[in-house]
Design a protein around this nucleic acid. Structure first.
Lengths: 301, 301
DNA sequence: TAAAAATACTCCATAGGTATTTTAT
DNA sequence: ATAAAATACCTATGGAGTATTTTTA
């Protein structure tokens, strides 16, 4: 029967194209590696390597065998990582994506606590728009991502952890600026600045405002919430931002007024997404818990 | 290091839920199996089975481990099958799909030759419409399928093996019936009977006739070419059939006239499709060769 | 007490080591 | 002549067997 060791040895030779060097990589003797590979080739009945005294070549069919071997070993490794992660979440780096309207606001809350609770945790962070993150999660390029729902994620697992409303940001002294709440109707008279196309927040804002797309095409449309705030400060208009971003974006600007948008229902929901058969699910659960707890503090204010 | 044997043993226990029976399935002693599984559990650091003197239970985490083990063993088996198939195409049953406008006409040509050239060959045949076959190939439910192109198969490999034109079938004595060729324009005056929705042939016929969909909605729309021919025989109209089907469908009906449709270009192309990383590609190649050769005879007539 | 898994103990197959030979430049 | 893989031969680990013990329903 084919063994995993044989496959490991074969991949080492593929990498080094040299039996002696490969044997050293595997911490065995040249002879052991040689016999193991001869045995593997005998078992599958195909020559993987063409070797003489000077060089090692990979046969065309050998390339395909090695490709499959690599895939098998990846899965074995995944099994090992799964097991480790069950005992100890976040034992291995987690590749995570975040959207631009979440990343800078959640990471400062998340990372310090994560470092304390899971000192070994390492996140490989990617910031991109929702549709790109969804694709990367599907391809396995990312292990998970934090999106704002609603967003189409067919075939993916979604784990919601936070619901939030939008807040209207305007300069003090403008109409409605002193109100406790602002309604959809009142908003219609305001010049609403939006993120540019491709940012899900734009769609969520339009949807919660019951506005059609055309109404809101601004000549300057920003690519970050921070830019939007700067535009508001510059007197170009007003904007809507999610609760999670309110404090960081508005705390230092005393000239701004922040008013809760009085439209029913959570205006967007943050959720982790992942492939249903991702094996290190426990790591995502651990992250999820930390996020839930940290955001609970926010809600209490 | 985890070994493949350990995984095999674990799956045997999953199946039997009994160490003794599992050990017999694996042709080893109960003791050998017991120590092997204890060793596996120790290596991954997780309990897969909960056992006492009366019963064996699978732990929740064990279920996930076994799922991954199964997937690994499937891939190992695939590697073995790949190797065997390289040396001997069609060593293992090939799950193949065919569309209804191809299956009954190509199989009688293909199967006898296949049996002679590859006596060990076994085909598991499924007949369905193109979109269903494409989905099954994508899912791995089928190894390959024979479709008529054009048809959207993004992400799949396509291997064309035959191009053919359409032939117009009508009762002798009707207008145009004695012609050598018939054109698009002349066809417009004919009552054209089509297969019902979902058969790619309908779309190909409409496309090669430059007709819009509406023009051709028949109150009876058939689900097989044979039915169409019966309808023509019954005087309900005329129809177009692909070259591959001409002989079988019209040879015994002396009252029918068969006229080549004189529109440029091959009217449809038959092709195998498969997942790009399907490992027993050599089997498909072998089939492809047989198809090409057998259809070459047809073309010579 | 009985059925089943775990363990003790033994054995042998085989993975792996060392030393040597073969092979092709 | 030399560099590298294959082979011969030996050793030791560990996989697997038999017999026995432990466990708990």
């Amino acid at each position: 029967m084919i063994s995993i060791k044989q496959l490991v040895y074969a991949l080492a030779v593929e990498e080094t194209l040299h039996f002696k060097k490969a044997s050293e990589k595997c911490n065995i003797s040249q002879s052991a590696l040689s016999t193991a590979l001869n045995e593997l080739e005998k078992q599958i009945g195909l020559q993987i390597f063409e070797r003489d005294n000077k060089k090692v070549l990979i046969t065309p069919v050998g390339k395909q065998v090695l490709q499959q071997a690599r895939s098998i070993l990846l899965q074995v490794e995944e099994l090992q990582h799964f097991a480790d992660t069950q005992k100890n979440p976040l034992s291995y780096p987690l590749k995570i994506g975040l959207i631009p309207t979440v990343a800078p606001y959640i990471l400062p809350k998340l990372l310090p606590v994560l470092n304390k609770r899971y000192p070994q945790a390492r996140l490989d962070i990617v910031e991109s728009q929702s549709h790109i993150l969804v694709e990367k999660v599907r391809q396995g390029e990312l292990d998970t991502a934090i999106l704002a729902l609603p967003f189409s994620c067919e075939g993916l697992l979604t784990l919601k952890f936070w619901e939030e409303d939008f807040y209207w940001v305007t300069l003090k002294g403008t109409q409605h600026a002193q109100q406790e709440e602002i309604t959809n109707i009142e908003l219609k008279s305001c010049n609403l600045l939006l993120l540019k196309e491709g940012h899900c927040l734009k769609d969520h804002v339009l949807s919660v405002c019951n506005r059609s797309d055309q109404l809101s095409h601004q000549s300057f449309s920003a690519s970050s919430l921070n830019t939007l705030i700067q535009m508001v400060l510059g007197g170009l208009g007003t904007t809507l931002i999610p609760e999670i971003a309110v404090e960081q974006l508005t705390a230092q600007h005393t000239s701004l007024s922040v008013v809760h948008l009085n439209e029913p229902g959570p205006h967007r929901r943050l959720a982790f997404i992942s492939r249903p058969n991702f094996t290190r699910f426990s790591s995502i659960e651990a992250l999820l818990e930390v996020c839930k707890e940290e955001l609970r503090h926010l809600q209490k204010n």
